[in-house]
């Protein structure tokens, strides 16, 4: 009887305490250890909230309170690397065009891997290219490959982080409403907080994302007063298809054509053409906003961008 009792007690302790240890051991040595020797195994977890590919372990104990920051992955030249991707929430897509990794579809609940060799020192930007939520456009970071024996390079800071605390202004004022949408929907992550553009887009035919603070010029509105007239028409929700009399804006037909083109660009998005046809797909793409923005919203954003134009004082 004594022997049975001891055996039984031990088996209880084993199942309550040792089982978790066995699980951990199995994971470390059989799952992570299954890759060929000498490879660096890195697990990247995608978090939509805040927008990050993180090296932290994300699970039920920390997801709801911790802020996860985009990871900088430091490697040495010649490293053989296995990236294990895990999504903690929705569908993501990992893409690092310059290192030729991906796009890797990352479904939650299922690990996918990508292997590569870090051959050349440098800093390489990676992205999420599947619209995963409000912070999607901030979901970028760096893979830094350093020559052997060198200290790791500091990559250029990715200026903005996903803030979602913008105060909602009244919808009535199109300029503030447009600005709010422009910030909240993360347009600023590519087009700049003042519409200055300039963010690099790898293998994009224009190299950089074009500026939008010159939208007035692009719409052929050459005078401040013309912008005011046009904005006033937008505010009055004038039906441009059915105008009673043409406004006092020169080349108004051209203005209208450009305006419609700009709005279609927001509505349907735009595929960014490759500079080098054999090269990688540019990672940053103008997405289609028709499902997320109303007609009024799009006009508000256009109004806001028109107001960004800096007019030169011509008082002479």
């Amino acid at each position: 009887m004594k022997f049975k009792e001891i055996l039984a007690t031990i088996s209880v302790i084993v199942s309550v305490i040792a089982l978790p240890l066995v699980i951990n051991w199995y994971h470390e040595s059989y799952v992570l250890g299954a890759y060929p020797e000498g490879t660096k195994v890195i697990t990247l977890s995608a978090v939509a909230k805040g927008g990050a590919w993180t090296l932290d372990k994300v699970d039920g104990t920390n997801y709801w309170w911790k802020d996860f920051k985009p990871a900088t992955i430091n490697l040495e030249e010649g490293d053989k690397v296995v990236l294990r991707f895990e999504s903690t929430d929705v569908h993501h897509r990992f893409y690092c065009p310059e290192l030729n990794i991906g796009p890797v579809e990352v479904e939650p609940g299922h690990i996918v891997t990508a292997e590569f060799e870090a051959n050349e020192a440098g800093t390489y930007r990676y992205y999420c290219t599947s619209m995963c939520g409000d912070c999607h456009f901030y979901m970028q970071g760096w893979i830094v490959v350093t020559a052997k024996g060198q200290p790791p390079q500091q990559p250029e800071e990715i200026a903005m982080a996903c803030e979602q605390h913008y105060e909602k202004p009244p919808k009535k004022d199109m300029v503030t409403w447009g600005k709010y949408l422009y910030y909240k929907n993360a347009c600023i992550s590519c087009h700049g907080d003042e519409g200055q553009g300039g963010v690099e887009n790898i293998n994009y035919i224009k190299d950089e994302i074009p500026a939008h603070d010159i939208l007035a010029e692009k719409l052929w509105l050459k005078e401040k007063e013309h912008v005011d007239i046009f904005v006033d028409m937008l505010k009055k929700r004038v039906d441009f298809e059915d105008l009673e009399e043409e406004p006092d804006i020169p080349l108004f037909n051209l203005v209208l054509k450009q305006y419609n083109a700009a709005k279609d660009l927001i509505r349907y998005g735009k595929h960014c053409a490759k500079a080098d046809a054999a090269g990688p797909e540019p990672p940053l793409q103008m997405v289609s906003w028709q499902a997320l923005l109303t007609d009024y919203d799009m006009d508000s954003i256009i109004t806001y961008l028109l107001m960004l134009y800096e007019w030169e004082d011509d008082e002479e």
Binding site: V12, V16, L19, P20, I23, D59, G60, Y63, D89, H110
Partner: peptide, 24 residues
């Protein structure tokens, strides 16, 4: 005993496993 072991697994999976119900 086997059910107890299964129970321990359930707890570990719940706290430390994937957040996706169907895969947990």
């Amino acid at each position: 005993l086997p059910v107890l072991a299964g129970f321990v697994l359930v707890i570990i999976a719940g706290f430390f496993g994937t957040k996706v119900g169907g895969r947990n």
